[in-house]
Design a protein around this nucleic acid. Structure first.
Lengths: 168, 168
DNA sequence: TCGATTTGATCGGACGTCCTACTATATGAC
DNA sequence: GTCATATAGTAGGACGTCCGATCAAATCGA
C-alpha cells in the first residue's frame, strides 16, 4: 500500500516552475487542477480498497446505491447516466458487469420500447447495504481532514460544478 | 459538448439520503469524495480538450513538462513514476505513446544497465511549450473559481496529500 | 399521415490507471 | 566471491472512461 513519501511536495515544485517562467496568472489554476487529479486518485484508491471484499468498484457501487434510493429499485439506463454524470456507454458497461454478478437485472421499459430498466436484485440490495456500512466506517467517517476542510471542499466543488453546467 | 444541466445537485441529493438513513457521521466524507470525483472528471475533460490539438492528453503532457523542467531534459522512468505518482506500468505505457509520437526517445542509463532514460526531443520540447501556452490561457488562467477558492482548494489538497503519505 | 429528426442503447476502439508475474541487473550479507 | 534480496522495466489482463458509428423506436412537423 505505502509507497515511500517524497521529501517535497511535487505540486508545489511545479508551482514554483510556473511562477519562475512568468506564468503566475495561471499558477493557481494549474495547482488547483493538479491537486484535484491527485486527490481523486488517492480517494478512489481508498474507496476501491474498502469495496474490494464485496467485488465492487466505486462506479458499480454508485450505480447500486442510485437504484436502492429509487422508489421501485429500478431506473432507465438513460436516467442512470444523467444522475451519475457518465456517458451512456459507461452505463452499459457497468450494467453488464453488475448483471453478470447477479446484483441487478435488465428489464424492458413498460412504455418506451427503446429503453431498458436496471433493477436491483435482492442480492444486489444486500451487497449495497453491507458495502455502505464498510465504506462509511472505513473511509467516509474519517478522511483525515477536519470538519471545516470538508465543508469548504464541498462548497468549492459545488460552485465549480454549477459553473461547469452540472446543474442549475 | 454541453449536456443539459440537471434541475438539482445530485451530490446534495445523495447527502440528504445519507443523513435520512442515519449516516450523518459519514455524510461529509461521502460528499467530499463524490465532489472530488466529479471535479476531476470535469477538469480533466477541459484540460484534454485544450490539449487535443497537440495530440496530447494530460498524462502525456505532465510527463513532457516533467522532462522539460529537468536539467538534462531526461529522467529515468522510475523517477518519472515517483514524481507523477503513477504506477511503473503507466509510465511504460505513456513513454511508449510519446515515443511513437516522436516527442521523446528512450536511452540507456549510463550507470545502471537496468534503467532507461526518457529524453525530450526537439519536437517534444516545442509541443510542450505550445501546449502550455494553450493550457494556461484556455484553462488554468480562468477556471471559473475565485482566487480564494483556488487557494483553499490547494491548501486542503495539500493537507490531504500529506496525510495520505505523498510527501513529508 | 409520412418523412425527418431525436432519443435510448449497444458495439468497437482508444486511453490511462492499476495489479500480478517475469526478466535482467544491482546490492547487500556472509 | 557467492548467494539472497531488492530494484528497473516490461508484458498481459482488468477496469472505467470517453468518442464515433449504428440500429431501432419515438416524436415532431408539414
Amino acid at each position: 500500500m505505502a509507497r515511500k513519501p517524497l521529501s517535497f511536495d511535487p505540486i508545489d515544485a511545479a508551482a514554483r516552475q510556473w511562477t519562475a517562467r512568468g506564468w503566475e496568472d495561471a499558477t493557481a489554476g494549474m495547482v488547483a487542477v493538479t491537486s484535484v487529479m491527485r486527490l481523486q486518485q488517492l480517494m478512489l484508491s481508498q474507496v476501491d480498497t474498502a469495496l474490494k471484499p464485496f467485488g465492487l468498484t466505486f462506479a458499480r457501487y454508485e450505480l447500486l446505491m442510485l437504484l436502492s434510493f429509487s422508489r421501485t429499485g429500478s431506473l432507465p439506463l438513460r436516467v442512470i447516466g444523467d444522475r451519475l454524470q457518465v456517458h451512456a456507454t459507461s452505463v452499459t458497461n457497468l450494467v453488464d458487469k453488475l448483471e453478470e454478478q447477479g446484483l441487478i437485472s435488465r428489464r424492458q421499459h413498460p412504455q418506451d420500447r427503446r429503453a431498458t430498466l436496471a433493477e436491483l436484485t435482492d442480492a444486489g440490495n444486500d451487497v449495497a447495504q453491507q458495502a455502505t456500512k464498510a465504506l462509511n466506517t472505513d473511509v467516509f467517517a474519517d478522511l483525515g481532514l477536519g470538519e471545516r476542510d470538508l465543508t469548504q471542499l464541498a462548497a468549492i466543488g459545488r460552485r465549480f460544478r454549477r459553473v461547469a453546467g452540472d446543474f442549475s
